[in-house]
Design a protein around this nucleic acid. Sequence first.
RNA 1: UGUCCGAUGGUGUAAUUGGCAACACAACUGACUCUGGAUCAGUAGAGUCCAGGUUCGAACCCUGGUCGGACAACCA
Length: 564
Amino acid sequence: MEETTNNNEEKKSLNFIEEIIEEDLRNGVNEGRVHTRFPPEPNGYLHIGHAKSICLNFGLGKKYNGKTNLRFDDTNPVKEDVEYVDSIMEDVKWLGFDWEDRLFYASDYFEQLYEYAIILIKKGKAFVCDMNAEEISETRGTPTRPGKESPYRGRTIEENLDLFTRMRKGEFPDGAKVLRAKIDMSSPNMHMRDPIIYRILHTSHHRTGDQWCIYPMYDFAHGQSDSLEHITHSICTLEFEVHRPLYDWFIREIGIYAPRQIEFARLNLTYTVMSKRKLLDLVKEGFVQGWDDPRMPTICGLRRRGYTPESIRNFAETIGVAKRDNVIDVSLLEFCIREDLNKRANRLMAVLNPLKVIIDNYPDDLVEEMNATNNPEDESRGKRKVPFSKTIYIEQDDFMETPQGKFFRLSPGREVRLRSAYIIKCESVVKEPETGRILEIHCSYDPMTKSGMAESNRKVKSTLHWVSAKHAVTAEIRLYDRLFIKENPDEVEEGKTYKDYFNTNSLKICSALIEPAVISAKNLDKFQFERIGYFAVDKDTTPKNLVFNRVVPLKDSWNKNEKK
RNA sequence: UGUCCGAUGGUGUAAUUGGCAACACAACUGACUCUGGAUCAGUAGAGUCCAGGUUCGAACCCUGGUCGGACAACCA
C-alpha cells in the first residue's frame, strides 16, 4: 500500500556494512560473490545479541544472493559440548535461517591448521616455547610497555619441527610447551607479541575425540577457517578489531585467500545482561530456572516466553548496525512483539484477580453462547462461542466503589459493556462486615443490549472482559518483569556486582479464570487476553494444569496515569 | 600515559557522500473505539562532543583537544 503513494521508490539507506559490500561489488572484488558465516563457539546458549549477528549475516547472504555458512568455532574442548551445538542449530533454524549443506566446524580443519603451523615453522615464523603460562604472561609486557622475547625464540627450524611433531604425538603433558608465532614482542598491539597458536590439551573433543592432544588457539583457527570457506566478508564484533592485524599476518605468511573482516558493535539491552558468563551464573546460582527461563535474553528463553521469530528478526532490522556502543531500550523489543502478536494472536478473555458479579435479573439456569471475534485485526480468524451465565467474574481493578479521577469502569449505579455480551449496571455491593472487603457485586443487565443486536449500540464509557463462573477454566499464570532493577546492571557501585540488582519480583505466579475455548491450546500457542496482555502456553503445561507465560502486557494508558 | 575504534534528540539508526538534520521506539495532546489495546491526527525534544581551519556552504573534509570503548586468558 505504501508503494502506491510514491512511485519513485524510496530507497532504504544502507548500513555501513552493506555500503562496504556494495563497494566491493562495484569493484568486482571476489567476482561479485558474497559469502558470510555465523561462527559461534558451542559453549553456551545463544542470546538476542547473537540473534542480531545471525540476522545480519544470513540477511546479508540473502540480500546479495550469496551464501551463509554455519560454523562452530570449536577449538577449546574443555568448554564445549554437543548440547550447545544442538541448541545453537535449533535456535538458528527457529529464527528462520538455513545454512543448507554448509554446516562446518573449525575442528574439521584441524589437520589443515596443523599443516599451516608447519608452514610457519618452516618459514622460521613460529617456535616452540617451554615457558609456563605465568612466565609467558610476565614477559608479555603491558599495553604501554614492550614485552621480552622468549629464551626459546631462537630455536632452529629443525628443533621446532621436531618438538611440535612430538607435541602432537603426546610426548608432553598439558602446559609443558606451546607453539608461538614469531612476530614482534614490542608491537603496540598486544596480539602481535608472539601469540600462542597451539597448546597441549589432553582432553577429548566433542567431535574429534582423542585424535588430538594439541589444539589451535581461536586466533589461529578463526581467520584461516574463514579463508578455507572462501568467506568474502567476515563480520564480527568490535573486540576483534585489534585481532585483525594478526589474522592478516597469518593469512599473508601462510599465503592463502584473504577474507575482509568488518567489525560492528554488539547489542546491549536495558535491564538485562548479555554475556554468556553472567547468563551462566544466573542459571548456576539459581537466580533463574535455566537457560530457557522466560526472563532470560537467550533465544530459547525468548521463545519460551512467547516471542516469535518474526518479531526478533524485525527487532534486529530496526536496531540497525553501526560501530558505536549502544544500549537498546527493551521497550523496543516489546514493541516488536506486540506489533506482531496484535496481528496474529487470537483473543481470549481471562480474569486474573476475580471479583464475583451476580446478574440478578438474568435467568438462573440460562446459558447463552456469545459470539466473540477471534481477532479484530483479522476478520478471517472468525468467531468463537463464549458461554454467558448469571454469575460471572470480572477483574477487581475494573470496579471501584467510589470512582476516582478518570476511572470510567464499573461503580455503583454505573453502566458498562461486557465484551461480546450485555450492558450491565451495578446495583449493589456486598461486603464482609468486619473488614469491609468487597465479596461480590450485584448487577442488572439490559436484554436489549446483547452484542450484535440492532439496538445494542448504546454508548457506555467502557467495556470489561469477563468469564462465566461455572464455565471458566483455571490456569497458572506466570507474570514476568525485567530481570534487573537497574537499566544497566553492569554499571556497578562500589562493592556490588550486577547480581545485587537482580529483580526479585521478576517472576510472579498467580492463577487465572479463562473462558473454556482455552482448553485446546497447545505448547507455545499465543493469545491476547483482552485488556491484559499477550500470553503463551508454557511447556510445563500438563493435561491437568494449564500454564501461561505473559509475553508482554498490553499498553495501559490508564495504569500509567494512575502511577503519576 | 601505548595502539586501535567511536562520538547526531531520552534511546537507536539515517542524512542522496559538502547543500542547511530525518525515521523508529519512548514521551505528551486529541480523535475514534464493544480491548483505556489497535488505528488515525498532531506536539515537544538535537543544531550534530569542544575549539580552530578549508569552503559561498560542514554532521560529513583538515588540525588539535575532550570524553567513551576495546586490547596485557595456554578463552572465544
